[in-house]
Design a protein around this nucleic acid. Structure first.
Lengths: 340, 340
DNA sequence: CTGTTAGCGCCTTCAC
DNA sequence: GTGAAGGCGCTAACAG
């Protein structure tokens, strides 16, 4: 059995209250008394029971990380892992604990967001990977529990979000392809349920316009953020439209699928087909050819999310509810200059 | 404010006690009463406060995952990530929550293992990645808190461990190299602080013997589980011992380092130098040449650890404290047949 | 400066 | 079947 305040009170002869105050650094306690109490506490290895403290203080010093896609199948994409590293590092530093709440759309029907949060008295939540129509998203936005979303813009007193300059990044990528001489650039989008998909597609459209290129509806396909799906949808597109010389993908995972498709179709990358990805996953630099891509900084996203969340929790007025990170465009070998 | 038992008691007119019993499925309560209470509970969205329950029941339904190396730098190795997926999946299923306790050797000096566990009233702990001389290891073994270690054999009432047939796997790999005609096989070991390093090295020695090969001390070097370190130590070894035709590495990460070193030395892999790794990290199949390696199953390790831990927590006598998973030897392109 | 009292939300005897 | 009382370990008024 772990030692309690009561034990110290008995040993030292002071009341539980005094012991509590002494240990918590209150100023209205005799320094001599404090010393006696601290000594006794150390002697019996006293450790405060955070559960009990949480119960009375109505805050648990615990945040939740709600995440979809925490699955071994998603190994190729370390996005979630890196965010987790950031959250873990930052929350530890700020004296919070973090519980992992891995969820799926179906799990969300069994237990509501509010249930999840209130049974553990979570002080706040960071959410990553929810689809736009997931029940938790709506609940989180309407809840009073402080919450920070990753890559989903929201507005509200106890809401915040962290994202990156995706739109600009996509535009840069398309413009780069344009400068390299490409005129027929198709776009493999991610799942329509993801908010980023909309953002990135809009940016694609806008940049076509800015480059003076015509938007063709059939040039946009949905790869569902899946390597295999991307492969499947790009093959007919490339077959039916041999004029296409470049593919922009909303994720590197899908770029891998396109790369494979190209290989199957006997198209040389980058000479006959150029590819640009998004995410800078580890593999993008290891496959042949290495993939030109847009690098996000998920670790920093984790850090920032946690910082904002904890400020929200503490009602810190200095909090800036939105934070946008700057992506980096990484040139590699999957794009070629086109001469015509 | 979340609803409490008291709220339900007031609404229904029953006592808090009865409400508690009704909701917890006790048999000594009138079914009609139970129905009334359940209805009221649902109506006001009652969710039990696990913190309060934990306080009185003296168990938190929370396990901790103590992990070293949860850092973005370790992205290439998804071992930790996969274990986490397994723990998360299994603990959710068994109605436990999991908190991430990322630690380092230096952090362990600030807060003891017991502090960490007792302040959060953790019911049990899974430990991964500790060095043999880390303070937490010693503490965990002597603690009464149920604990499952990954890849560190321990013995004790509330201890368990999960590992794989590493020794056998290493032997198979060495024998394979032997069969392929290699006679001068060197070994790049991991950090000496890791328990697996000892196991794997012993297996290397034993299999040399079984193959009738001579053990040369200078053939064993320490790559510290680091790509760069492995590269640095293998270069002089290969230069001084041109007779070496094969390198066995205690991790794929180090195999990558050796691969790079070979390239720098102008040695063709596998024609002039064969390499075998350990772990089957994602990259091992993507680099050129792809690396022949020993595949572990970290996800399953996470699952098994959690199962064992929760049995230990519940004093389940059916618990088997040790579990050994079977690794798979994956043949790829980094080993060649040697003719002499 | 210190102690008394009360209560966070819940569960568990023990009476009735 | 149900309720009253007590306590898990801690903090927060309020007295003194």
């Amino acid at each position: 059995m772990a030692a309690t305040l009561k034990d110290i009170a008995i040993i030292t002869g002071f009341s539980i209250t005094t012991v509590s105050r002494a240990l918590n650094g209150y100023s209205d306690v005799n320094e001599k008394t404090r010393l006696i109490i601290q000594t006794a506490a150390k002697k019996i290895d006293y450790v405060p029971n955070i559960l009990a403290r949480s119960l009375v203080m109505q805050q648990s010093k615990t945040i939740g990380f709600i995440i979809t896609g925490l699955q071994r199948e998603n190994i190729k994409d370390s996005f979630n892992y890196e965010i987790l590293c950031g959250i873990s590092d930052c929350s530890t530093k700020l004296q919070y604990e973090c519980v992992i709440l891995s969820t799926t759309t179906s799990k969300q029907r069994n237990k509501t967001y509010t249930q999840l949060c209130s049974e553990r008295q979570l002080d706040g939540v960071i959410i990553q990977g929810l689809k736009m129509d997931d029940p938790y998203l709506h609940e989180a936005i309407n809840s009073k529990i402080p919450c920070v979303l990753i890559d989903i813009p929201v507005d509200g007193d106890n809401l915040g979000f962290v994202t990156s300059n995706q739109s600009e990044s996509v535009k840069n990528a398309i413009k780069y392809l344009h400068i390299m001489g490409h005129r027929n650039i198709c776009y493999v989008n991610g799942s329509s349920h993801a908010h980023v998909s909309k953002i990135r597609k809009d940016a694609y459209l806008k940049s076509l316009q800015e480059c003076g290129l015509l938007y063709k509806k059939e040039y946009v396909v949905n790869g569902d953020f899946s390597e295999e799906k991307a492969r499947q949808v790009i093959i007919p597109l490339l077959l039916n439209h041999p004029e296409i010389t470049a593919v922009f993908c909303a994720s590197d995972i899908m770029a891998l699928g396109v790369l494979r498709a190209a290989r199957e179709l006997g198209l040389n990358v980058p000479n006959q087909l150029s590819i640009v990805g998004f995410d800078n996953i580890l593999l993008s630099q290891y496959v042949t050819p290495s993939i030109t891509t847009i690098a996000q900084n998920p670790y920093e996203m984790g850090i920032k999310s946690t910082e904002i969340l904890i400020k929200l929790i503490n009602g810190d007025n200095s909090v800036v509810r939105k934070h946008e990170l700057i992506n980096e465009f990484i040139l590699r070998d999957s794009v070629s200059q086109l001469f015509s």
